[in-house]
Design a protein around this nucleic acid. Structure first.
Lengths: 219, 219
DNA sequence: CTTGAAATTCATCATGCGTTGAACTCATCG
DNA sequence: CGATGAGTTCAACGCATGATGAATTTCAAG
């Protein structure tokens, strides 16, 4: 009865740990996933996980790093006719998240909901990898860009929540193109529609001179 | 040096436990909040929490029950000119969540993101307390109602996420009326705009190309 | 065939958790 | 005053977690 020691043959245990880790993080988020459970799922001793990845946080980073590659996708979604940007953004988000590689995105998102550390990661990722490119690609009034892009993010994040996290019907099982058709127009409007006048008191207006406190502009 | 025993005077410890519990649940969600931390925050021994509330789940329910009272708010937001329903919904959501009592709502939402039990609670709450009333109050084509209402929920949930959970700027600190002005029109469109034709392949119509699509639950 | 590195496991530590039951202290009522 | 019970704390149990270091087995190079 052998107990410890190296396994015979060449098996890529490291990869299967990463796979199990992504599954776990996607299903339950960072905090609720235990290294022990991940190791068990990968058919491996928990200590091996530490041997390869050191700490749980590094494991998370390693599990995220491989499949999340915004360098290709984002520009692809942003390039093209500007009036279809909303549609491309929504479709890309759904496509990525529905794909097997998308489990990393789900993991990232789900974890960010309850863990401060991963929330910071996601914020940074969104800002540096997505928003900046978006602002550069889509021609946006720099004064309005922050609010416009975060409104877009808001709508897409809400879609994610409904479909992948809370799994509210019929969002959860609706056909992808149904959602694209329903949501894309509103995303497009966040990019294009003139912002209401009260808006000027918030961003670029600089009217009453207060930077931090927005003007109580009741209408 | 006294250690244990009843405290002098009449102090409402039970209430301050509930208060600390709501704070904790709102800030960190159900799983990440420990009874020990809540007890410490309330200046009390952890055992006292169990003495009053029995289990952690019952504590959560007790902390939610008091301030969440949709019986009044929802009808109030739904009644009124139909073409301003979007605006009233968005403003109500922001108002409730910004209020001190809203910490319960934040707690519920945040917890639902990472804990299955609370997610079920939220789903049930949303469906029975909000969606049904909404469908009844706003005149909606029954065939389209599920998707329309969940699209609305999606947009509002996304706003919540950005403003209260992920705290993405400028959503987090934008003036309430700025968000109302920016988001309400899109909510209104989810209620009113004709759904794209591809939509018919989802809810009733059996249109072409719906082969591999998952069968929706409603029907 | 030897040797050293890599892969893998075991046993263990320290920590924090939810929960429990017994003990202690105070307020109130007779 | 004495008794009763509610309020409150202490000490502990059992469990799960992330982490560590030594021990064991296999592989590959010399």
């Amino acid at each position: 009865m052998k107990r410890s020691g190296r396994r015979p043959g060449n098996q890529d245990t490291k990869a299967s740990i990463l796979e199990a880790a992504r599954r776990a993080f996607a299903e339950k988020g960072f905090d609720q996933s235990s290294i022990r459970a991940i190791a068990g799922d990968a058919g491996v001793d928990p200590a091996l996980v530490h041997h390869y990845f050191g700490t749980k946080e590094k494991l998370f980073l390693a599990a995220m790093n491989a499949p999340i590659n915004p360098g290709e996708l984002i520009p692809q979604a942003l390039s093209g006719p500007r009036e279809q940007a909303g549609e491309r953004l929504v479709r890309m988000a759904l496509t990525v998240w529905d794909s097997p590689a998308g489990s990393a995105a789900v993991a990232m998102f789900r974890s960010a909901m309850s863990n401060e550390w991963t929330a910071r990661l996601l914020r940074e990722f969104v800002v540096t990898q997505i928003l900046r490119r978006a602002v550069a690609s889509l021609v946006l009034d720099p004064a309005e860009a922050p609010l416009r892009t975060s409104l877009v993010a808001t709508q897409i994040a809400g879609m994610m929540i409904g479909r992948y996290v809370l799994r509210i019907e019929p969002m959860a099982s609706a056909d992808r193109e149904v959602l694209v058709a329903a949501i894309a127009p509103n995303v497009q409007r966040f990019l294009d529609d003139p912002m209401p006048e009260v808006f000027s008191s918030y961003n670029g207006g600089r009217a009453p001179g207060a930077a931090g406190a927005p003007d109580p502009a009741g209408r």
